[in-house]
Design a protein around this nucleic acid. Structure first.
Length: 580
RNA sequence: GGUCCCGUGGUGAAGUCUGGAGUUCACGCCGGCCUGUCAAGCCGGAGGUCGCGGGUUCAAAUCCCGUCGGGACCGCCA
């Protein structure tokens, strides 16, 4: 085979006169009769025009080596759209290294190809400029993060993929054991427990670009398997962790954009919920939630006689028709709201609403003042329990105002002081918001036992847990961990986990903690998500080389597939008949 | 478990609401012409189980039911 001397996209006028050999795929041909044709040859760096004597035996996507002389293009034929547009390769000989059948879809971006077809033929899709760019961007982000962590004296440690199933958290992927039929490994949802063991082991600063697996439903920002920057550090608090992560993320952003982002603002979970109705607020746009409970404190309108009333104002939203508003109301109800009240503001400040007749003049005036509504605006209101109100309006805010991923810049945000417990179950037992090794807020550490059985106190307790949010996507979360047995026992007690159960579930961690566990804290954030946003993609599949569909299937390899009965037999497994 | 949207030559779309001959557009593919194009151009051609199954009807891409596949979302994701 002819030896390549140059990459297509790197030739320029400084190469004029050189005899070069470039290798790649025929991206396009332009024939001008029997003895003149232009070939755009594509490799990973771009395309270059080759002038050939007839191209009758060349077809799109043939793999060829072209040898010829780099020359400046004749006057008037320079293509300013092309990086190599000032030059071309002439006096060429073409060696066909491999022909190609016509492709199932075109590589160029002239038409948006159905994503299933792209994934089924991902080896072709990867040739596209978009996928080349995304894959290389991802590699640069990985590299920048690794360098930033190493510069901060973190050591990369690999943790096992075949681990014990733990009952908490997401649904595990499980792997049957051949040597111990009837027993199973789980694939890690994260290296959580191992990295804490690393702290006990004196590693001091651990990191890993860790593959994590969770058997939960897939979404635009969720695949079964994903990569996290996972880290843990000893003798450190939450602020230390946030500084380290901020540095790594800033390094990644700088690598991609050339600009270092400003330091990331921090708000508490409580503030995020009050203002944005979300623990992962998209702060690229306004439309914040407006507190209206006081305005309607003495209302005669039954629907507003609720613990909490809030609204959001959409500037210029009054032009929405009745049909659209009904659809929106249905949508909001599907999220679990009792209903959605809308109020339009007219030119003279008068309000139009199905419920206008139930509202007093004072209430309307208070509403307009609180929301700052102007003529042409629409206000949506929800009244219910506080948690429901903020959740519904948070979803509605995104539905109505969320910009495309490529607009509004990069809005990083730390959300701190998450609640320690997210709910109380029907037995009166609190449910961990993060995981049971999360350190409570400093002011609650000594009062854990007294809070038992008091839902109000339990739900008011914060934890030293924090999330990193980018443009409304949760990039990741972390916390200060409990390293003291007395605090851990108090939390287990609140969660209704007795000593035997704790030992059964997390025994090896608790054992390790008896031998001098240092105070430690950590974090993990999703590489796929940050890369997608940096790449301007709405979907992490676009930054994953071989992704799965929403139903968890791989159109390329057809996974998952049934397995041979002999394999099942070896594992001591038998299939149940399919559910009808 | 649930809601919504999509499925039409190789690719992308229109046609579906309001039933009437597989109709249209762009790209690609095949052949011809063409010596400076670059999303080349011009001429000609091939290519279809309108996802699948059932129903309604004189007649279904179109209406109804079911099903499969894809997507967005709710639940789920400590």
């Amino acid at each position: 085979m002819t030896t390549r001397t140059d990459y297509c996209g790197r030739l320029d006028t400084s190469d004029v006169g050189r005899v070069v050999t470039v290798c790649g795929w025929v991206a396009r041909r332009r024939e001008h009769g029997e003895h003149l044709a232009f070939i755009d040859l594509r490799d990973r760096t771009g395309v270059v025009q080759c002038v050939v004597d007839g191209a009758a035996d060349l077809r799109n996507e043939y793999v060829v080596a072209v040898t010829g002389t780099v020359r400046e293009r004749p006057e008037g034929t320079v293509n300013p759209e092309l990086a190599t547009g000032r030059v071309e390769i002439g006096d060429t000989t073409v060696e066909i290294l491999n022909p190609s059948d016509p492709l199932p879809f075109q590589i160029d971006s002239r038409v948006e190809v159905d994503e299933t077809i792209r994934i089924r033929h991902r080896y072709l899709d990867l040739r596209s400029e978009r996928m080349q760019r995304n894959m290389r961007l991802r590699a640069r982000v990985n590299s920048a993060i690794r360098r930033a962590m190493e510069a901060q004296e973190f050591v990369e440690i690999e943790t096992p993929m075949l681990i014990a199933s733990t009952p908490e958290g997401a649904r595990d992927f499980v792997v049957p054991s051949r040597l111990q039929p009837g027993s199973f490994y789980a694939l890690p949802q994260s290296p959580q427990l191992f990295k804490q063991l690393c702290m006990v082991g004196g590693i001091d600063r651990y990191f890993q670009l860790a593959r994590c697996l969770r058997d939960e439903d897939l979404r635009a920002d969720r695949q079964f398997e994903f990569i996290q920057l996972d880290m843990e550090m000893s003798f450190a608090d939450g602020a230390d962790v946030r500084a380290v992560i901020s540095e790594a993320v800033a390094a990644a952003v700088e690598e991609v954009t050339g600009t270092r982002p400003p330091s990331f603002p921090e708000i508490t979970w409580q503030e995020a919920m009050e203002r944005f109705g979300s623990d992962k607020p998209d702060t690229r746009f306004g439309m914040e939630l407006v507190e209206l409970t006081e305005v309607f404190a003495d209302t005669g309108f039954n629907a507003f006689k609720a613990p909490s009333v809030k609204g959001i104002r959409v500037p210029g939203g009054a032009s929405l028709g009745r049909n659209k508003l009904d659809q929106l109301t249905d949508r909001v109800k599907s999220w679990g709201a009792k209903g959605l009240v809308w109020i339009k503001v007219g030119d003279a400040g008068q309000v139009t609403s199905p419920v206008a007749k139930f509202l007093s003049e004072t209430e309307v005036a208070g509403l307009l003042a609180a929301t700052g509504a102007e003529a042409g605006d629409i206000i949506y209101l929800v009244a219910d329990e506080w948690r429901t109100v903020v959740r519904i309006l948070g979803l509605l805010r995104l539905e109505l105002g969320r910009p495309p991923v490529t607009e509004g810049g990069l809005d990083f945000l730390w959300v701190t002081d998450f609640p320690l417990f997210e709910d109380i179950d029907e037995n009166g037992t609190p449910v961990s918001a993060h995981h049971p090794f999360t350190m409570p807020g400093a002011e609650y550490v000594d009062g854990l036992a007294e809070a038992a059985g008091d839902p109000e106190k339990l739900l008011a307790m914060t934890s030293q847990a924090y999330d990193l949010v980018l443009n409304g996507w949760e990039l990741g979360s972390g916390s200060v961990r409990v390293h003291r047995a007395d605090i851990q026992n108090a939390i287990f007690s609140l969660l209704g986990i007795g000593p035997e159960e704790a030992q059964a579930k997390f025994g090896f961690l608790l054992d390790a903690f008896r031998y001098g566990a240092p105070p430690h804290a950590g974090f993990a954030f999703g590489i796929d998500r940050v890369v997608a946003i940096l790449a301007g993609e709405e979907n992490i599949r676009e930054v994953i080389a071989f992704p799965k569909t929403q139903s968890g299937a791989d159109p390329l390899t057809h996974a998952p597939t049934p397995i041979d009965p002999a394999q099942l037999d070896e594992l001591g497994l038998r299939l149940l008949p399919p559910k009808s």
